[in-house]
């Protein structure tokens, strides 16, 4: 072990307390996620082709949670995130802006018009020539079509809206495109995923590819899949958008996070989403 590596290891261990090795992947390997006793979600499946060199199977973050947390997501009333989906639905029907329109004026019932959206974003927008997140598309609609003020990229209003949109795709497999016009962004996201950063010198992969299933202090490390976002986190009892989670992770390794809504984080979101191609859309999920 070179001196440099040993310093890295010590830093990483100081951060983690210790990573306990040899833990089972999940407390109950056979736990199945069924919502309201009727909608069965895929929480483990074969890794997509582009990941085959690194992982055999991919797992939703749900499988790493304790039984009580898991149970909270299995009923739409017990899931506290769903009240924010209700608030998102209220916002969907609210007329705003100079054009005197609501989301519903053009898109009618989101159960029809938004079905499948969460599963395929971030997605290339041909007219704009850019990769767009659901948040980006919401703000495009608000500013260009409604003549309304954009939501702050990470905010309660935005989280409510993207949660409501995510619910319309619940149970559908994540299926983001990774080639064609998004190829360059996907490669950029992959580069970010594997680049060590911060005082602790950790990459996304250090925890979520090389140590998933192990404990970081008392936390069970997941694969860092984002199929459950937005996620209602018990720690602060609110919905978290995916790029806010990225931001928190990089801050925790004492790095300098990209801006939420930046092209870099959007590229990373595409890449991380593609690592979960095949898992069910779960938003709004419940996590610790």
């Amino acid at each position: 072990m070179t001196k440099l590596t040993s310093i890295r290891t010590i830093a990483a261990l100081a951060f983690a307390g210790s990573i306990a090795l040899g833990g089972a992947v999940t407390a109950d390997e056979n736990a199945e996620l069924v919502i309201n006793g009727e909608l069965a979600l895929v929480t483990k499946t074969a890794a997509p082709d582009h990941l085959k060199d690194s992982l055999d199977e991919i797992y939703s973050g749900w499988v790493y949670r304790e039984t009580d947390t898991q149970a909270m997501q299995m009923d739409d009333f017990d899931n506290p995130g769903m009240v924010f989906v209700d608030l998102g639905m209220d916002a969907w029907n609210k007329v705003e802006g100079t054009e005197n329109k609501s989301c519903a004026s053009c898109h009618n019932d989101p159960a029809e018009s938004m079905k499948g959206v969460r599963a395929t974003y971030p997605k290339w927008n041909e007219a704009a020539g850019e990769l767009r997140t659901v948040e980006g598309q919401v703000n495009h609609c608000r500013t260009k079509n409604m003549g309304a003020e954009p939501y702050k990229y990470v905010s309660g209003d935005m989280a409510n809206m993207v949660a409501m949109i995510a619910v319309q795709s619940r149970g559908m497999p994540v299926n983001v495109a990774i080639d064609g016009p998004v190829k360059a962004a996907w490669e950029q996201g992959k580069e970010i995923y594997y680049t060590r950063t911060g005082v602790l010198d950790l990459s996304c992969a250090s925890c979520h590819e090389q140590n998933y299933g192990n404990y970081i202090r008392a936390d069970h490390l997941s694969q860092g899949q984002i199929n459950g976002f937005p996620a209602y986190r018990l720690k602060d009892a609110r919905l978290h958008q995916v790029q806010d989670r990225f931001w928190g992770c990089i801050r925790d390794v004492r790095g300098e996070p990209y801006d939420r809504g930046s092209p870099e984080f959007t590229a990373l979101e595409l890449y991380v989403a593609s690592r979960g191609n095949g898992l069910s859309v779960e938003g709004a999920s419940v996590r610790n």
Binding site: I216, G248, C249
Partner: peptide, 8 residues
């Protein structure tokens, strides 16, 4: 009450 590893 367990103490998480990540503030995230």
């Amino acid at each position: 009450v367990t103490i998480g590893g990540c503030g995230g």
